[in-house]
Amino acid sequence: MTSKIELDYLDQLEAEAIYIMREVAGQFERPALLFSGGKDSITLVRLAQKAFAPAKIPFTLVHVDTGHNFEEAIKYRDQLVEKIGAKLVVRYVEDTIKAKGLQEPTGKNASRNWLQTFTLLDTIEEFEFDACIGGARRDEEKARAKERIFSFRDEFGQWDPKRQRPELWNLFNGRIHKGENVRVFPISNWTELDVWSYIRRENIALPSIYFAHDRECILRDGRLLNNTPVIQPDANDQIVTRRVRFRTVGDMTCTAAVESDAATLDEVVAEITISRISERGETRIDDQQTEAAMEDRKKGGYF
């Protein structure tokens, strides 16, 4: 046979992700796409556009806003939604905290990241979403490496890692009872480098914070955090100005910047190709705390 039938790995990953998106549209009545303004969810939106072109994407975009987001990411989100004519639902962790009288974590490295779960579960209930598409990847973290592509959640949003449904071939079983839901991860099999390579290949615009810029940062325990009032100061903190970019764009309280001169997609891809530290290891503060932090959060309904 000729070599034309040999698909490059990025084409294979894209074809798989599009297939998964279409299964969601075909199997569920009220699917949502969780959109954070980060590169993984931006990639998801591009894949969804390709999956349903020339029609609009058949998913409601949902953003759970911790109130600690980067301005650039929010601006990007609003422009994108406008451009693609999608429906956007934003729900605020702040509102959940008030309504439920939740105790906000305090002290050094306090983060609302975990509280997102409550807002997410409420939002799922409010709109009766039966499937939520997310941009989690198995290479990110060791508990995620174990999760199915169609990940079943019970009526309390809980993941049971010891009783996952078998997932055979590409036959995804999205059957659920009312009140239960499925989290779907179309880019499960992508690595961080794959996402960046894809963004470069597709020439997808990203929020500016992904590229090198000078920023005033808090230097804490060897990590650079954005200097913002939402981070509680600590006596040992130093305020420094550095040339940085962000590898992930989550909640500001738990996302660190990396020092970098990479100002273009080519340069970022080159830098990540040779990087010897994982994305989460370098930038996520919330996973560092215990060995099973992510597993515990997921059991509780976290993404």
Binding site: R138, D139, K142, K146, S188, E291, E295
Partner: peptide, 30 residues
């Protein structure tokens, strides 16, 4: 590296499949 669940680590066994990604100059692997 692949035993990512708490019970797997505690019991030293593999309960569910784990996916890991790597590459060489020749190929990408799942």
């Amino acid at each position: 590296l692949t035993d990512g669940l708490r019970s797997e680590r505690e019991q030293g066994i593999t309960i569910d499949v784990a996916y890991k990604y790597f590459q060489t100059p020749k190929r990408k692997f799942i």
